[in-house]
Each structure stands twice: as structure tokens, then as C-alpha cells.
Write a protein that binds this DNA or RNA. Structure first.
Lengths: 121, 121
DNA sequence: CTTCTAACTAGTAATGATTACTATTTAATT
DNA sequence: AATTAAATAGTAATCATTACTAGTTAGAAG
């Protein structure tokens, strides 16, 4: 993967933001630095950066994919307004609430390479 | 929410499947029982059932939303082939592998109603 | 049982997030 | 400086999902 101005700007935007931007949000931020950057370039780089494990994705329950820095933490997601709250102090002892937010469900997803795909590498 | 033939068939398909079907997969199964069921009806009911917490959604890393029965378990998702493996015996003591599948990341998402949305109810 | 009506459906059109394509540019190696 | 594979801008295409409309139906009330 080559180092380009566009890719560096996009990675910096993700790493310096706490707002879980979607692709268009990243595009709007990036245009402040590279006025004619293409939306396709933003999509292509977000996919490439995610594939290289340099950024993470978050699904907030809408149809948009949101992007997040690689920084170990968990999320609370409101099923009504789709707000995402970063959790840096998860405590499984009382998981029915997290700071006045009512918890209804807990999803745990392990991501990795399955047995079959390891053999094909 | 009224009980309709279409809605019952769709809920049954989700509850009797282990394959994390997407909307079109549910549509194909449903047509075996209601030959002229509409794809729009499938989408509308999947959304309604999820909103009523009768079914769950799973994101496998593709652009398709997959549906799952409400049955407390966790998921392993392969980042290469997007296979979803159900986990009923999660053990945090050694999380670097799950049954020969290499774990690279663990996402924990709490879902619920945020403080602001509670006040607006 | 009949009437009533809001909720639901089938079928189709529209939307919009994402991806694909193409000519041009550029990082970085030789 | 020359070379070239990878990347980009701009635009067109894709396709999962949602919206719309006229007709149908579940289920409550008389």
C-alpha cells in the first residue's frame, strides 16, 4: 500500500475524531484539506484501511457504515436514535445500565480468520 | 402489531434457521409457502420484527444485513470469507482462538435506550 | 354474524449508499 | 531521469433497501 496525501489525510481524520464519521462525513472533512478529493477515493481508502486493520467499522443500526480509530474500547448504541457512546470502563458486574443508559442487549463478536481461510493463505 | 400469514411465515423462517439469512434469502424461503409474497413485505416485516425485539440482526462485513433468532449466543465472523459461526460456549480465558479459528478482534456492543431517548418516551 | 377501519400486502418505482470504470497522475524503485 | 504499478478525480452504474399506491384483511365493536 503506497503512502498518498489522500490516504494520510483520511487516516488522520479517523484517528483524530471521536464522532464515528460515515464515508460522507470523512469526505466533507477531507475536502477541507484537499478541496477536490473524490468521494470514490474516500470509499476506496476507508475499505483499504479497514482491510489493513488500521481503522475499525461500527454499525449504528442505520444503513450507513461508520468508521472508528483502532483504540480498544466498547460501544453503547441507542436503538432509537442510533447514538454511539464510547465505553472505556466496561463493567460486567452490573450490565443492565451504563451511565443512565438502559442496556437491553449485549452483542459480542469475535473477528478473525476461520479455519478454512487460514489453510488457503 | 397484527398477526398476518406473511409475518408468521417470516418469523418461523428466522426461528427455524441457523444460517443467518439476508432479506433476499428469507424472501426465497417464504415464497415456498406464499408464492406471491412481496420482497417489500419481507423487508417491512424484518424491520418490524427487529424493532419489536423478536429477531436480531447480524452484520457479517458485507453490505447485506443478516437476520438471526433471539437466542443468547455470540458470533465469530471471518474477516476474509464473512462466514458466521455461532458461539454457545464463549470462554474469555483464552480468546486468541475459538475452535481453530484465529481471533484478531473482539467487539462488544451494548444496545439499549440512551438517557435522552428515555426522557422523550 | 356484519360493519368498520387501521394495519397490512403486492407490485412497482424511487432512493441513495457504495462500487466500477476510465483517462490521467504520482509514489517510489531502478 | 525513466519507468511503471498503484492511486486518483470524475462520472456512470449497481443493487440493497425504502417509498408509494391501490387493493386486501385482521380483528374489534356493535
Amino acid at each position: 500500500m503506497r503512502s498518498t496525501k489522500q490516504r494520510n489525510v483520511i487516516l488522520d481524520i479517523i484517528n483524530n475524531s471521536c464522532s464515528h464519521l460515515d464515508a460522507y462525513g470523512v469526505y466533507e472533512e477531507a475536502r477541507k484539506q484537499i478541496s477536490n478529493i473524490s468521494l470514490g477515493t474516500v470509499y476506496r481508502n476507508l475499505n483499504a484501511l479497514e482491510k489493513s486493520h488500521l481503522i475499525d467499522v461500527v454499525y449504528d443500526g442505520t444503513d450507513k457504515i461508520r468508521y472508528d480509530k483502532k483504540d480498544f474500547h466498547q460501544h453503547f448504541i441507542c436503538v432509537k436514535c442510533h447514538k454511539i457512546i464510547d465505553i472505556y470502563d466496561l463493567n460486567f458486574k452490573n450490565i443492565s445500565t451504563y451511565k443512565n443508559n438502559v442496556v437491553m442487549n449485549c452483542k459480542i463478536i469475535l473477528e478473525g480468520i476461520c479455519e478454512k481461510c487460514q489453510k488457503e493463505e
